[in-house]
Computed example of a mutant assay.
Amino acid sequence: MTDTAPGTASIEDFLKLDIRVGTVVRAEDFPEARKPAIRLWIDFGGELGTRKSSAQITAHYTPDALIGRQVLAVVNFPPRQIGPMRSEVLTLGVSDGMGEIVLMAPDQAVPDGSRLH
């Protein structure tokens, strides 16, 4: 798989993104999605609370295995309609050697709602 390099971004562009850590509190298969996906409910704590996301991560994850796992997500994009679900955050991941998504997460527990710097 080849990725297209994006154009140059400024530090101001990066600072516009609000990327936070949250804990998956609920996960279920999302059969209505066009591509295989899992619905996630992610608790970002305090002011943000629990937000929904759809993630195409079925190659490496099952819903049950995601419960309690911390993930990173962009929390300030506008909501997006994915089939019958309104996705409120963009859960972040990277492609493995086969193009399947691997979730991004801190390597040790941090408070939910912690911001990426």
Rank of each mutant, 00 (worst) to 15 (best):
L40I: 14
L40R: 08
L40N: 02
I42L: 14
I42T: 08
I42K: 04
F44T: 00
F44S: 00
G45W: 10
G45Q: 10
G45D: 04
G46F: 08
G46Q: 15
G46Y: 14
G46T: 10
G46I: 15
G46V: 15
E47W: 12
E47M: 14
E47C: 11
E47S: 14
L48G: 07
L48K: 12
L48E: 11
L48M: 00
G49L: 11
G49F: 05
G49R: 05
T50L: 12
T50R: 13
T50M: 13
T50F: 06
R51M: 12
R51L: 15
R51Q: 14
R51Y: 09
R51P: 03
R51W: 11
K52T: 14
K52L: 09
K52P: 09
S53T: 13
S54T: 12
A55Q: 04
Q56D: 10
Q56W: 04
Q56S: 08
Q56N: 11
I57H: 06
T58V: 13
T58F: 01
T58N: 04
A59C: 09
A59V: 08
A59R: 13
H60T: 01
H60C: 04
H60K: 05
Y61I: 01
T62Q: 02
T62S: 03
P63M: 04
D64Q: 10
D64C: 00
D64H: 07
L66S: 03
I67S: 06
I67A: 12
I67Y: 11
I67V: 14
I67D: 10
I67F: 10
I67G: 09
G68C: 05
G68R: 03
G68I: 06
R69F: 03
R69D: 08
Q70R: 07
Q70L: 11
Q70V: 01
L72P: 00
L72D: 00
L72F: 04
L72R: 01
A73W: 00
A73D: 04
A73Y: 01
A73E: 00
V74D: 05
V75R: 05
V75T: 11
V75M: 11
V75K: 02
N76L: 07
F77Y: 11
F77E: 10
F77R: 12
R80T: 12
R80E: 04
Q81G: 13
I82M: 11
G83H: 13
P84I: 12
P84R: 09
P84M: 13
P84K: 12
M85H: 15
M85I: 08
R86Q: 13
R86M: 15
R86E: 14
R86K: 12
S87D: 05
E88L: 09
E88I: 09
E88T: 14
V89H: 00
T91R: 06
T91P: 02
L92F: 06
G93S: 02
G93D: 04
G93K: 02
V94H: 14
V94M: 13
V94C: 09
V94Y: 15
D96H: 12
D96V: 08
D96W: 03
G99L: 11
G99M: 12
E100V: 01
E100R: 10
E100G: 00
I101L: 07
I101A: 06
V102P: 00
V102A: 02
L103S: 03
M104H: 01
M104N: 03
M104Y: 03
